[in-house]
Design a protein around this nucleic acid. Structure first.
Length: 763
RNA sequence: GGGCGAGUAGCUCAGUUGGUUAGAGCGCCUGCCUUACACGCAGGAUGUCGGGGGUUCGAGUCCCUCCUCGCCCACCA
């Protein structure tokens, strides 16, 4: 502790670097961030609980402005509720981030000239664990630098023993309820990560490609039909010549074709249904079938059917009981896989799919089977982790049946149990859930929660278990565990309950804080994470995991490009903290973010970008200095004790402005929770307007207190007497409350100044 | 293809249920180194509120239409 003398000395220049760290240490020592479940009203305590689950950053992540914005918003809300008197929990944690972390280690290995297979599964996992233990979680330490008041004593990790137990429990429960099944179908496959992906992880992007028109020769081509050379003059699909032209964007998959399909009512091709064509290159006979799936208006009205490498074709294949040859290896090179026979000719085996596309086109050109190539814009899916073009691929995966889970999640938003801010995202959420598809949760990775399923090869039984299985429960034979791990999001969707102790339903923390209150994140993970948490809440607790979803904007540069390290347009929040202080960073982002609006910052001009916060912090500092110099340190009278006749017009005005500002701030922040479990319409879409709260406070402090009221007190305070005492008291009171008002946004400087205010005493 | 959002001062954005001279920050201009603060103070300029049409006593705010950006979702090969 400082001496009284030091306490009252303020340097002319505010230097956040000098003070912030020490203040944070004191907060930690005082334990003020630790939530006590016993004090929650739900456990018979005397305080309303208030809880926020921090979106767990990847364990290997480094802090960027997106985290800065996200966590500042959460911290402002958490500090606000804590000051109100709620028993407040901000639950922090990290995500083991299956694919992302595994990719890092694989890159390390590649640099050493090795692959994960050189290590083997066990060694690979050990190495990853060691890497995480050594470098992981750094981001949580970085969050302290911006003042985040999470309860670090409860820091969670999705791959910890506790959370892993929750993952197993969730898997087994869903399996027992018939909501998890093994499916054989075409899924999204990343040939670089060598794993299946969920629909959400395979992200569309519009790209220019080509539509290749390719001739397939009819198996019973009339003998007298014109030669191919003659036909080359024709572009239309004149079947009289004995050929059918197909339009495709992916000719490399044609080796896996098992049929051509036309619309049953397409007059052009009706008579061909049931006949056959010769699949070029592979030289096999395949049937012409009729299926409603075909759109006669697109391309030539003839579709090649490749069931193992296209989800639609797979459905067609099922309907028509067609074979499903796999003609590509997991890494995207051509090979004769399951049921492929020798469809892929030797010269193409081992060739990458895109190179194979070129070669096949050249070959078709040579044999006059390529009619034309036209540019064509279409959506291509990419791996959300490595951006590789995803390959649809037939395989066995584990799925969660989502429709039953989606039902209560939909209802919750429809009936106002859960609100989404800004309002417009509710429609997006509802639309997604209404059209929900089953969730592929198995990943062919090594880093993650291994699927808790064991197989007995002896008696062919399958054991799904909460605990490890060493022998078959039926025949006692040896068992082997499923090789795959679970989607990372299968652990994070449990975060609001697993971090509080679920599946132990007697957990005091779970009782105290679940359902939690606000969930604050970016819209990008609304489907990945947020909606799934809602579903998990209802599935496992029969309750919503939170009542408010607040989706804030994205941090962008002045060209509106999303900030990212890889693009070189990022801002390191720690840089900003070092240069201007955490409070400057915090005030700037809070004041700069409208409800759901993006935050635009200039990475080439940090000073200009963060001037609003830095300038305001300096202003506060100087008001503080004025107080110390002019008001002094001797106690002031309590404002409550001042008589009406003692107060000047100016005193009354600034006191009224203070009250009005507090009201404004309260209005901007709104109700912390719905009154009876459901949001009433008048409150549902109001509140959490942090920028309005910040602006109200700034206007009061700067325009009213500093520029106006403080000036009027200079003469009064300088003239000893009763009025001087009144002015000292009112000014101190007003600044005291201004500091409290601003504390959630600018915790460090307000704490520093507040500690030095003269204390009010009864007259 | 479906859905959503945005277009307001040079820049980034506020403008809640339609109502007095349209606001803030940053920038700009003019004075001021006034003993809290030049990261400041006092004052100032700046906008046919994307275009067009309509409803209304009155519209940035409601309706129609068009244009330009952006986002999300999607099995037209």
């Amino acid at each position: 502790m400082s001496t009284t003398q030091e306490l009252h000395e303020l340097p002319a220049q505010y230097d956040p670097g000098q003070t912030e760290r020490a203040i944070y240490e004191r907060w930690i020592e005082a334990g003020i961030f630790s939530a006590d479940e016993k004090r929650s009203r739900r456990n018979g305590g005397d305080r309303d609980p208030f809880a926020i689950i921090m979106p767990p950053p990847n364990v290997t992540a480094a802090l960027h402005m997106g985290h800065g914005l996200n966590n500042t918003v959460q911290d402002v809300i958490v500090r606000w509720r804590r000051m109100i008197g709620d028993e407040t929990l901000w639950q922090p944690g990290t995500d083991h981030a299956g694919i992302a972390t595994q990719n890092i280690i694989e890159k390390q290995l590649a640099a050493e000239g090795k692959t994960k297979f050189d290590l083997g599964r066990e060694a690979f996992v050990e190495r990853t664990k060691a890497f995480v233990a050594e470098t992981g979680g750094e981001i949580l330490r970085q969050l302290r630098a911006i003042g985040c008041s999470a309860d670090w004593t409860r820091t969670a990790y999705t791959l910890s023993p506790e959370l892993s137990a929750a993952v197993r429990e969730a898997f087994v429960q869903l399996y027992e309820r018939g909501l998890i099944y093994r499916g054989h179908r075409v899924i999204h496959w990343c040939p670089r990560c060598l794993t299946a992906l969920s629909d959400e992880e395979a992200q569309h992007s519009e790209e220019m490609g080509n539509l290749y028109h390719i001739r397939y020769e009819l198996a019973d081509r009339p003998k007298g039909a014109p030669s191919l050379a003659d036909q080359m003059k024709l572009e239309q699909n004149d079947t009289a010549f004995g050929y059918l032209t197909v339009a495709t964007t992916r000719p490399e998959t044609m080796l896996g074709d098992v049929a051509l399909a036309v619309h049953p009512n397409d007059e052009r091709y009706k008579r061909l249904i049931g006949k056959s064509v010769i699949l070029p290159i592979a030289n096999i006979k395949i049937p012409i079938i009729a299926d409603e799936y075909v759109d006669p208006a697109f391309g030539t009205g003839v579709v090649k059917i490749t069931p193992a490498h296209d989800p639609n074709d797979f459905e067609v294949g099922l309907r028509h009981k067609l074979p499903m040859p796999v003609i590509m290896a997991p890494n995207g090179t051509m090979e004769n896989g399951v049921d492929a026979g020798d469809r892929v000719p030797p010269q193409l085996i081992g060739i990458d799919r895109f190179e194979a596309r070129e070669r096949i086109i050249r070959s078709l050109e040579k044999s006059k089977l390529l009619v034309k190539v036209e540019p064509h814009q279409h959506a291509v899916r990419h791996c959300y982790r490595c951006d590789t073009v995803v390959e649809p691929r037939l395989s066995d995966q584990w799925f969660v049946k989502m429709q039953p889970l989606a039902k209560p999640a939909l209802e919750a938003v429809r009936d106002g149990t859960i609100r989404i801010l800004p309002e417009r995202w509710e429609a997006v959420y509802i639309n997604w859930l209404e059209n929900i598809r089953d969730w592929n949760i198995s990943r062919q990775l090594w880093w993650g929660h291994r699927i808790p399923v064991w197989y007995c090869d002896k008696c062919d039984s399958k054991i799904v278990s909460r605990t490890d299985v060493s022998a078959c429960d039926k025949c006692g034979g040896a068992v082997r565990q499923d090789e795959d791990v679970l989607d990372t999001w299968f652990s994070s969707w449990l975060f609001p309950i697993s971090t509080l102790g679920w599946p132990d339903k007697s957990s005091a923390a779970l009782a105290a804080f679940c359902p939690t209150d606000d969930l604050i994140t970016a819209p990008e993970i609304l489907f990945f994470w947020v909606s799934r948490m809602v579903m998990a809440g209802y599935a496992f607790m029969d309750a919503p995991p939170f009542h408010t979803i607040y989706l804030h904007g994205t941090v962008r540069d002045t060209n509106h490009v999303k900030m990212s390290k890889s693009l070189g347009n990022g801002i390191d929040p720690l840089d900003v903290v070092e240069k201007y202080g955490a409070d400057a960073l915090r005030y700037t982002v809070i004041a700069g973010m409208g409800m759901g609006a993006d935050l635009v910052l200039d990475h080439r001009d940090l000073e200009r970008s963060f001037a609003p916060g830095r300038n305001f912090a300096t202003k506060l500092w100087n008001i503080g200095r004025f107080l110390l110099v002019n008001v002094g340190t001797t106690p002031v009278r309590s404002v409550d004790e001042l008589g009406d006749s003692e107060l000047t017009l100016g005193d009354n005005w600034i006191l009224a402005r203070l009250n009005a500002t507090i009201l404004e701030a309260d209005m901007a922040l709104g109700s912390a929770r719905p009154e009876k479990g459901k949001w009433r319409l008048q409150e549902r879409y109001s509140g959490l307007r942090l920028s309005e709260y910040a602006e109200a406070a700034r206007r009061f402090v700067w325009d009213d207190v500093a520029d106006w009221y403080l000036e009027t007190t200079k003469g009064r305070i300088g003239t000893p007497g009763n009025d001087s005492e009144v002015a000292r008291a009112v000014l101190t009171h007003v600044f005291d409350y201004a500091l409290r008002l601003l504390h959630p946004i600018m915790p460090f400087i307000t704490e520093t100044l507040w500690q030095r205010l003269p204390s009010p005493v009864a007259a």
